[in-house]
């Protein structure tokens, strides 16, 4: 790791000020991606601004129609939250399978979303559930937030403060992990929303990061059953291919995982 300057932010405003004052600052949310990247000397921020001691960024609360999760809430806290388990069991299960137990004690939802790793789990839930990302300055609907691999609609220096999820009638996530990294090779979040609509979001498999699959959504809106997905092909040309699996394999896995998520919705 290159030398850096550590800041412990006391408030979001403080964090914003420190970030603005840094030559090449980075926000440190859980650090479970940023710190390994810095250790490999693949990132060299002049300053890191630690958000995890800001009380306003923590906690899980039931809102009128859903749940609001502070950006610095850890994966373990989301997985263990009674509110999340009751309203969005798929989201709780997803959080409970991110990384490993030690990672889940440090990694945060805000950090995961800001990084938008194409194999991260949370983006699929955010997109499928139509969550709203709250930042220090504005609110961004999920559709507008994700902008391809490791890219988001966040402005330079913009800090995520919370994510607000609407409740769903049913939700489930099925992930096929990369055997080595255990990141998603194909992770599919299926949500059945209050209006009867179904949304299917896929992470890990696509070349441009998380995406929705409209063909599956339409099929499931008509018949919310795994069989409804029979014969719905995922375009392999848009899938990633690497030493762990071909694009064809990933395309196939997307359908398999989608079926499993539907089945898990019960």
């Amino acid at each position: 790791m290159y030398e850096t300057t550590y800041h412990r932010a006391e408030s979001v405003a403080d964090a914003a000020t420190r970030l603005a004052g840094a030559e090449d600052g980075k926000l440190l949310a859980g650090g479970q991606t940023l710190l390994p990247t810095m250790k490999q000397r693949l990132a060299a921020p002049s300053d890191v601004i630690d958000l995890t001691h800001i009380a306003d960024l923590k906690g899980i609360a039931e809102t009128g129609g859903g749940v609001r999760i502070g950006a610095a809430t850890t994966h373990a806290e989301v997985a263990g939250s009674e509110i999340v388990k009751r309203l969005l069991p798929g989201l709780a299960a997803l959080a409970g399978h991110i990384g490993d137990p030690h990672v889940r004690h440090r990694g945060t939802i805000g950090g995961s979303l800001a990084n938008n790793d194409p194999a991260a789990d949370y983006p699929s839930a955010v997109l499928a559930l139509g969550a709203v990302i709250h930042t220090y300055t504005r609110q961004l609907p999920a559709e507008e937030f994700f902008a391809g691999m490791f890219e988001t609609a966040l402005d330079e220096g913009e800090i995520i403060t919370a994510v607000e999820f609407p409740a769903a009638t049913a939700s489930a996530y099925a992930k096929y992990p990369n055997p080595a990294s255990r990141y998603a090779m194909a992770g599919v979040f299926v949500a059945r929303l209050g209006d009867g609509g179904v949304r299917v979001a896929v992470t890990g498999a696509g070349q441009d990061g998380v995406f929705r699959h409209e063909g599956m959504e339409q099929a499931l809106a008509g018949n919310f059953a795994a069989e409804a997905l029979d014969g719905i092909a995922v375009d392999a040309d848009e899938m990633l291919s690497d030493i762990h699996g071909s694009a064809e394999y990933r395309a196939h896995l997307v359908t398999v995982m989608a079926k499993r998520a539907v089945a898990a919705c019960g």
Binding site: Y6, R8, L28, G31, Q32, L35, P36, K39, V48, D50, T52, A76, P101, H102, V103, H105, R106
Partner: peptide, 14 residues
């Protein structure tokens, strides 16, 4: 809580 001490700055644990 169990954490990976290689993935946390000492300053974070102050």
């Amino acid at each position: 809580k169990a954490v990976k001490s290689c993935t946390m700055l000492a300053a974070q644990a102050a």
